[in-house]
């Protein structure tokens, strides 16, 4: 293993890894992961954008694919012929936003997408992920973020959503996936980011939550998602973005976390894994890079902790 001081970010390798993702049709895993393809496209696109090589991917091809995933009811599936889902709908809108192509959707199409999203909100303010889907705070975030990006977020939707999120708060200051659910860094991110979009961070028990989040860093520098669990690169995003939104990111030791992420890289074929020695994937590649970007390392493009988009695309949301 390389000595600590030799660790660095294998930028070119990671770009290469992302570009190669779509050339793996001869592998069984490629077909088994179709249900995440649009989400994966967003993770891959964001990776090359953060690495400042947005042209590494075929922009026209991506837009064509996004449009192929659109259903008549305005929702997007993760792959053509797959059912529409809130998660893939957010990915679609984020991708179009990154590629400056939201205007490809007509007013009528946007209204349909908005209807698709709001029709999934339940009377208690929570959201179904799809027509049969679970209720989960993750879907409140996907819905609210999406409506905000489409400039169609109404007070009525906000008030209900905030009411639901407040019921998911726990004794440790964190949030779970539904009322009663255990605190988990990913659920905390979706709740905190939703509240930030809705301008309602006031309902958080900030000192308690910040302390809990700051205790997620373990001895090897990595962050875990729950107490007494193993650290994982994706929590570099979930924990750090939450702390950034609350203006407390400095409670994490950046140098140690950076090295933890570096060690999870595959320096031969590119990509980042959940932790050192494990198989890489595009999800952890993106969240590793997003974490490094939040910490300001490696001259990456800065990322917005609330919207999970490059900051130059979200400045309009931060005025006032």
């Amino acid at each position: 293993m390389a000595a600590e001081e030799e660790l660095k970010l294998a930028k070119e390798k990671h770009v290469g890894y992302v570009v190669e993702l779509d050339n793996k049709r001869d592998q069984y895993e490629y077909w088994l992961t179709e249900h995440l393809r649009l989400n994966g496209t967003y993770w891959g696109l964001m990776s090359v954008v953060l690495l400042k090589t947005p042209d590494a991917l075929d922009k026209e091809g991506i837009i064509r694919f996004v449009m192929e995933c659109k259903h008549n009811d305005g929702g997007f599936g993760p792959f053509p012929r797959h059912d529409a889902h809130l998660h893939s709908t957010l990915s679609a809108i984020q991708i179009l936003k990154i590629l400056n192509s939201l205007d490809l959707l007509t007013t009528d199409e946007i209204n349909k997408t908005v209807n698709f999203i709001t029709s999934l909100q339940l009377p208690d303010g929570s959201f179904h992920g799809d027509r049969f889907g679970e209720v989960d705070t993750r879907f409140v975030y996907t819905a609210i973020n999406c409506l905000k990006l489409l400039d169609k977020l109404s007070i009525k939707v906000i008030d209900k959503a905030v009411e639901f999120i407040s019921k998911c708060q726990n004794f440790d200051g964190g949030f779970g996936n539904c009322p009663g659910g255990e605190s988990h860094a990913a659920m905390i991110f979706v709740c905190v980011a939703t509240l930030a979009i809705c301008n309602r961070l006031d309902i958080i028990d900030k000192p308690t939550l910040v302390q809990w989040l700051s205790e997620r860093q373990v001895t090897n520098g990595g962050l875990n998602g729950r107490p007494e669990k193993l650290p994982d690169v994706c929590y570099s995003w979930w924990v750090l973005s939450s702390l950034s939104i609350l203006n407390e990111a400095q409670l994490i030791d950046f140098e140690k976390l950076k090295n933890f992420i570096y060690k999870a890289q595959d320096t031969i074929n590119g990509g980042i894994a959940d932790r050192e020695g494990n198989e890489v994937d595009v999800f952890h590649t993106y969240f590793g890079l997003a974490g490094l970007s939040l910490m300001g390392f490696d001259n990456l493009l800065p990322i917005d902790p609330i919207y999970a988009l490059p900051t130059h695309l979200t400045t309009q949301y931060h005025q006032n």
Binding site: Q27, N269, N278
Partner: peptide, 18 residues
């Protein structure tokens, strides 16, 4: 993917997998 060990397959093993 969570908790799956990274393996770099040899050329032969790769072909067999394909």
């Amino acid at each position: 993917m969570h908790g799956i060990k990274r393996t770099h397959l040899s050329k032969d093993a790769k072909l067999r997998k394909l």
